[in-house]
Write a protein that binds this DNA or RNA. Structure first.
Length: 508
RNA sequence: GGCCCGUUCGUCUAAGGGUUAGGACACCACCCUUUCACGGUGGUGAUACGAGUUCGAAUCUCGUACGGGCUACCA
């Protein structure tokens, strides 16, 4: 009898949500859906000094956009609330466990001030040991309930002296566990420091909170970034002391997503020339805007597709997956152990492919929005739909639609005259004057029929039709791009096509 | 420095001891197309190094090198 699958994503609301974060969400989500489980979102806001206004709402917006909505969260409710650690602390959910650990002798009070800690690090710092740890080698030299007598400790406690609770790491134990991605991982406890569990302000640190909350929320599988691996022995020990190893979730430490130079970090923003955040993020303090994948013009379907394939594959050569297909195919065991360097070129390819194959109706509102933003009037939605189908092969990112569709709704302001001028002749001018009439009088106004008429007239005037197509394009489009020129003319209509030709003739 | 994790084309990756080491992105060439793309065909390009186990190693073991992460009263 296996317990119900319950997974959680536990971000701290300190800024934008980057690629790695979204991928962690995605793997959680896929795993939960695949196994008919619950996906919980818990806010890890125990560090009040790092509180950033708006960050939590922003995270929900990103998840909404990506289509990875949690079953339980501070926003969506649930039976295991509250879902913010600050509120859980206020409800007194952590203190008792810290007390229990102290009673068991697995944790102790430490009275060292930040200054004293700094001093300790300065004193014991050597070339061989550049960052001394508060561990079994040093704890008896510090001020804590282990080094002090019971009377002294009680006196300090009674006086309300600032204190933290630290875990007492055992001196000769090997802690090991099975990671779903890496297999067995083990650590020598003597080499791990006595991490703070409860801070002076009464807030738990991540280490205590993650264990207590995962237990209370009945989390069955805990997925997080590889950067947590070094502190995993602390969490395993806490599970052992508090709730028993049988109750511990199965761990999977996800490989990191690397930027051009190491771990992708929130601070790196758009420094790489590509977005790192899911959506635009404006730092409330500096007002600095960092562009997101959404605003850059990525489809959410493409975004999760490319993220899923960054470190995972289904064992076949399939690369394009819908969300449902991902749910169906996903397995944690097929996630790679090695970190993956993010490749923006490939990311764009995913988006391009999604744009090409997705139903144009889905693109319609997005493109319309974009055109309106660029002051291009869209009066006819059914025309826009036809245009989108005609040109979506040419668009990698959503904003590409602006250039590719705008000339259907607004005559080009400037024509690329230079592309035509050198080969321009009076004969060609005569041709186009005649062709204007052809267009106006065409009864079968379809691309094929128009092209035939065009070629017949060219033959009549003894000009190679190929020499005339580019000028026509320039007159209709303004530049050397766009779909087949007779498709454009038909969508434009007889009148508009004729007018653009007349206008173009004046400029050549 | 210590600890942990990792290492297949430039990048993402496949290959449950036996393959001419496969695919995708990017790049190059050709075809299609008298625009730009899409598409098609082909090409360049990888098992970090050294030992060992084995008839046989990208695959198992060890060492080395390299890369990354952690080393806060941050997560």
């Amino acid at each position: 009898m296996s317990k119900k699958v319950r997974v959680r994503f536990a971000p701290s609301p300190t800024g934008g949500l980057h690629l790695g974060g979204v991928r962690t969400v995605l793997y959680n989500y896929l795993f939960a859906k695949k196994h008919g489980g619950d996906f919980v979102l818990r806010i890890e806001d125990t560090d009040q000094t790092r509180y950033v206004a708006g960050a939590e709402a922003y995270i929900f917006n990103c998840l909404e956009w990506a289509g990875l909505v949690p079953n339980e969260s501070p926003l969506h409710g649930g039976n295991y609330g509250p879902y913010r650690q600050s509120e859980r602390k206020a409800a007194g959910m952590y203190q008792q466990y810290a007390d229990q650990l102290i009673e068991q002798g697995h944790a102790y009070y430490a009275f060292d001030t930040p200054e004293e800690l700094e001093k300790m690090r300065a004193i014991y710092k050597t070339a061989e040991n550049p960052s001394p740890q508060y561990d079994h080698t040093l704890r008896m030299k510090m001020r804590n309930s282990l080094s002090l007598s019971a009377a002294e400790t009680n006196q300090l406690l009674a006086a309300g002296t600032k204190k933290v609770v630290r875990i007492k790491m055992p001196q000769n134990e090997t802690v090991s566990f099975t990671d779903m991605i890496r297999g067995e991982v083990s650590f020598d406890t003597a080499l791990v420091d006595d991490k703070v569990l409860l801070k002076a302000d009464g807030m738990p640190t991540y280490h205590l909170a993650v264990v207590v909350d995962d237990y209370l929320m009945q989390i069955s599988h805990a997925f997080r970034g590889e950067e947590w691996l070094p502190s995993a022995p602390v969490h395993v020990l806490l599970w052992k002391y508090l709730f028993g190893l049988e109750a511990m979730p199965q761990w999977a430490h996800l490989p990191l997503i690397l930027g051009p130079s190491g771990k992708l970090s929130k601070r790196d923003g758009a420094r790489y020339g590509f977005p790192v955040f899911a959506m635009n993020w404006t730092d409330p303090k500096t007002n600095e805007l960092t562009e997101g994948f959404k605003e850059k013009g990525f489809l959410p379907e493409a975004f999760i597709n490319l993220l899923a394939l960054l470190g995972w594959n289904d064992g076949t050569e399939k690369e394009i997956f819908s969300k449902d297909e991902l749910v169906n195919a996903f397995s944690m065991e097929r996630v790679h152990a090695a970190g993956a360097k993010f490749d923006y070129e490939k990311a764009k390819w995913f988006n391009h492919d999604w744009i090409k194959h997705v139903d144009s109706n889905l693109l319609l509102p997005l493109v319309k929005d974009l055109l309106l933003q660029n002051e291009i009037p869209v009066t006819d939605e059914s025309l826009l739909l036809q245009v989108i189908s005609l040109i979506k092969d040419r668009c990698t990112l959503l904003p590409d639609f602006v250039q590719q569709t705008s000339f259907f709704f607004k005559a080009p302001q400037q024509l690329d005259v230079a592309a035509v001028k050198s080969k321009w002749t009076d004969e060609k001018k005569t041709f186009f004057e005649a062709f204007t009439e052809t267009v106006l009088q065409q009864t079968d106004f379809t691309p094929a029929a128009l092209e035939t008429a065009f070629k017949e007239l060219a033959a009549e005037k003894n000009i190679k039709p190929g020499e005339l197509q580019l000028p026509l394009r320039i007159m209709l489009v303004g530049g050397k791009f766009g779909p087949p020129v007779f498709d454009i003319a038909v969508l434009l209509g007889k009148k508009e096509t004729a007018e653009r030709i007349k206008r173009g003739l004046k400029q050549f």
